[in-house]
C-alpha cells in the first residue's frame, strides 16, 4: 500500500524562498537548500520548488539551485516555473530533479507533455494546473495561467483528462480559490480530477491545519497534498500533519 504523500512547496524568488498570498505580499522565508534539508529531515515525502518569478520575467530556471538541492537531499523533488522547452526540462533533470512541473507552457503547447513523457518517461512530467471556480465551463472550474493572471476558457477536468492522455505522470491541482486562505483544500475540484484520471493527483492550495490533510485524503481521493505557509511559519510541523493522518487511519510514512 502506498502511503499518502505530504509535499512541502517552496516558492523561490531571486534565490530565496518566499511566501505570498495569490502571488502578492511576498515575505522572505530562507535559503532553499537549507529549508529543503530541514523538511527532508522533518519527514517530507517529496519536495516541490516553483521558481515563481521565472515565467513573469521570462528568466530561465536557476540550475545551480537545482544542483545544490539534489546534492543536499535524498528524497525526490520536482521543479516548476520558467520551463519553456524540452531542452529546459532536460537541464533540470540532468541537474538532479526527478520531475518537471509544467503549467502555462502546457496550456500554450500541450504537445510538450507528450514530448517530455517520450524523452524522460511519464513519471518525470507533472502537470500543474490553477483552476478557479467559474460558470463558464462544464465542470464549474476554469484553467488560469501565468499565476492566475489569464483566464483560458478551458475546463479544468477536460484539461486533466487530455493531459493524462498526452502522457503526464501526475497532476497537481492548485485551487486558485483556496490558495493562501489556510481554510482547507478545495475538495470538489480535487475529487473531480482524481476521479477523472488514472494518474496520481496532488492537492494544492489552502492547507492551514493538520486535519485538512486528513480531509483531502479521505474525501477528495488525493494521492498527495502540498503544504506551504502553515509549516513555513513554524506554526505546524510535517510531523504534526503526519500524526493527524496516522491517528485518522490514513496510510502515512512515519519513520524517516
Amino acid at each position: 500500500m502506498l502511503t499518502k504523500r505530504v509535499i512541502p512547496c517552496l516558492d523561490v524568488r531571486n534565490g530565496r524562498v518566499t511566501k505570498g498570498v495569490k502571488f502578492k505580499n511576498n515575505v522572505d522565508l530562507g535559503d532553499p537548500v537549507e529549508m529543503a534539508v530541514g523538511y527532508s529531515e522533518g519527514g517530507a515525502d517529496e519536495l516541490v520548488f516553483y521558481d515563481i518569478t521565472a515565467s513573469a520575467e521570462g528568466r530561465p530556471i536557476d540550475i545551480g539551485m537545482v544542483e545544490a538541492v539534489a546534492r543536499a537531499v535524498r528524497i525526490p523533488f520536482a521543479v516548476g516555473g520558467g520551463i519553456s522547452s524540452l531542452a529546459d526540462m532536460e537541464r533540470v533533470i540532468l541537474a538532479g530533479a526527478e520531475k518537471i512541473s509544467v503549467n502555462s507552457l502546457a496550456v500554450r503547447n500541450p504537445q510538450i507533455i507528450a514530448e517530455g513523457a517520450r524523452a524522460f518517461g511519464r513519471q518525470c512530467v507533472v502537470l500543474g494546473m490553477d483552476p478557479v471556480r467559474s460558470g463558464k465551463t462544464p465542470s464549474g472550474y476554469e484553467i488560469t495561467t501565468r499565476g492566475y493572471r489569464d483566464f483560458t476558457g478551458m475546463d479544468a477536468v477536460e484539461w486533466a483528462r487530455r493531459a493524462a492522455d498526452l502522457g503526464t505522470g501526475e497532476i497537481v491541482v492548485n485551487s486558485v480559490d483556496a490558495d493562501g486562505t489556510r481554510e482547507g483544500f478545495e475538495l470538489e475540484i480535487t475529487r473531480l480530477v482524481a476521479e477523472a484520471v488514472d494518474v496520481p493527483v496532488v492537492a494544492s492550495g489552502g492547507a492551514g491545519r493538520p486535519e485538512h490533510f486528513v480531509t483531502v485524503f479521505r474525501e477528495a481521493r488525493a494521492d498527495a497534498a502540498i503544504v506551504a505557509g502553515m509549516i513555513h511559519s513554524g506554526e505546524f510541523t510535517i510531523a504534526s500533519i503526519k500524526d493527524a493522518m496516522r491517528d485518522a487511519g490514513v496510510p502515512v510514512r512515519m519513520s524517516w
Binding site: 502506498l2 502511503t3 504523500r5 505522470g169 501526475e170 488514472d198 494518474v199 496520481p200 494521492d223 510514512r253
Partner: peptide, 21 residues
C-alpha cells in the same frame, strides 16, 4: 482507487522506500 504509475513510499519488510513504476 489505485493510480498508475504507482508513485510514492511503500513498505518492504517494515521499511518504506520510494517507488515510481
Amino acid at each position: 482507487g489505485f493510480k498508475v504509475p504507482a508513485i510514492g513510499w511503500n513498505d518492504v519488510g517494515g521499511r518504506e522506500y520510494y517507488f515510481v513504476h
